[in-house]
Computed example of a mutant assay.
Amino acid sequence: MQTQKNKLKEVAQVFFKLGFFAFGGPAAHIAMMEEEIVAKRKWMTRNYFLDMIGATNLIPGPNSTEMTMHCGYERAGRKGLFVAGICFIFPAIIITGLLAYLYVKYGELPEVKPFIIGIKPAVLAIIASAIIKLSKKAIKSTELAVLGVLVLVVSLLGVNEVLALLLAGIFGMGYFYLKERIQNKTLSISPILLSLVVSETVVKLSSLKVFLMFLKVGAILYGSGYVLFAYLDAELVSRGWLTRPELIDAIAVGQFTPGPVLSTSTFIGYQLSGFPGAIAATTGIFLPSFLFVLILNPFISRMRQSKILRHFLDAVNVAAVAVMLSVLVVMTIDTIVDWRTILIAILCSYLTFGTKISTMWIIAIGSVLGYLLLLF
């Protein structure tokens, strides 16, 4: 039996490695975690992993980063939560900080497009694999399958994913509760309690001001990198602290570096207040996630023990898989644009479904292929 120290070391190794290879956004990050945590290391069941995804989607903050914290908590307690989150974030912060220094010094970003062209098709195969495995556990009945299809449709139509998940959870909870009452012919009333505990124009700001600004964003942020762009545009550009082209460059850094897109905060913090600003911004935007997960995690298993909240989780879980599928559809349309990306997608799909090669190697292979094929 492993000691607490060994468990913490294992958590650190797993998420530090993921932090270097986690490209492609939250859906891809969660897919990689599913392989490492559930399939390979068996730290928890796929059902419980699904419960964590469902619960995490309903709180503010970067979902995939919060999932690392949940996994760390399950493996090594509260210390594991902080170790997992910090190790996952750390590689992105270091890479982004270095890029911020070079950007401020030379005024431009490095050319990484050839490598990203290959990474994106590889990520599609990894996400598809996770969706198939998770859907087998999430779709427990015909009603849940129909609910998943409805969430997929409304997500593709542009409905906010958090709203879609929440409405699916409430509808599923009410429907299955009433169905059980009718089947059991019972008039007993169960209390319903759902409490989810929830360049030249750059202005130099104090580190405290940078910290508080990003703390506010981290505490209320829902959604993708595009939502983050809107938040930061309102906080920075409208006040004249950053130009919009500089903000776009910062968001681009978060997109093409591994790990959470919120590492953008490190880049912007450096622009606003140098190294202290980078530390302040990074700490501010990620701190709420640590606190939210610390509060939420103990309630996930308890929700399973409540009959009516169990229905809520089942509905949210199938909705979460549907949202992942909608992300995959949109990413596929944006990514598969020529013969190179088609070739990489086919090869990486074979490696994902036909072999036992680690997702980390598939990402690396896709990246190298993207660079080589662009030479032709």
Rank of each mutant, 00 (worst) to 15 (best):
Q2R: 11
T3G: 15
T3H: 14
N6V: 08
N6L: 03
A12W: 02
F16H: 00
K17E: 09
G25S: 02
A27S: 12
M32F: 09
E36C: 12
E36V: 12
A39I: 05
R46Y: 04
L50R: 06
L50V: 08
D51N: 14
I53K: 03
A55R: 02
A55K: 01
N57T: 03
I59W: 00
P62C: 12
N63W: 04
T65H: 14
H70P: 03
C71M: 13
C71F: 05
G72R: 05
G72Y: 04
E74Q: 15
A76V: 04
G77F: 05
L81N: 01
V83T: 12
A84I: 09
A84C: 14
A84G: 09
G85Y: 13
I86C: 08
C87T: 12
F88C: 09
F90V: 07
P91F: 13
A92E: 02
A92Y: 06
Y101S: 13
L102T: 12
G107H: 08
G107C: 05
P110C: 10
V112Y: 07
K113P: 00
K120A: 11
A125V: 00
A130S: 13
K133I: 04
K136W: 11
I139T: 11
I139S: 05
K140Q: 15
S141L: 08
L144Y: 11
L147V: 09
G148L: 07
L150T: 15
V151I: 13
V154P: 01
G158K: 10
V162F: 05
L163Y: 14
A164Y: 05
L166K: 03
A168L: 08
M173N: 06
I182G: 03
Q183Y: 08
Q183L: 14
L194P: 02
S199H: 10
S199C: 00
E200W: 00
E200G: 11
T201M: 06
L205T: 05
L205V: 08
L208F: 13
L208K: 14
L208G: 07
F211A: 00
V217A: 15
V217F: 00
I220S: 10
G223H: 04
G225R: 11
L228C: 04
L228T: 06
D233R: 15
E235W: 00
G240R: 11
W241G: 01
R244V: 00
P245A: 07
E246K: 12
D249L: 07
A250M: 10
A250T: 05
G254M: 03
Q255S: 02
V261S: 14
T264R: 11
S265E: 07
T266M: 03
F267M: 15
F267R: 13
S273L: 03
F275I: 14
P276W: 10
P276F: 13
P276H: 05
I279M: 14
A281G: 02
T283K: 03
T283L: 15
P288H: 03
F290I: 10
F290A: 10
F292Y: 11
L296K: 05
S301I: 11
I308T: 15
I308F: 13
H311E: 09
H311N: 10
A315G: 09
S326Q: 09
V327T: 13
T332F: 00
D338N: 15
Y350N: 12
K356Q: 12
K356H: 10
I362Q: 02
I365K: 13
I365N: 12
G370H: 15
G370N: 14
F376Y: 09
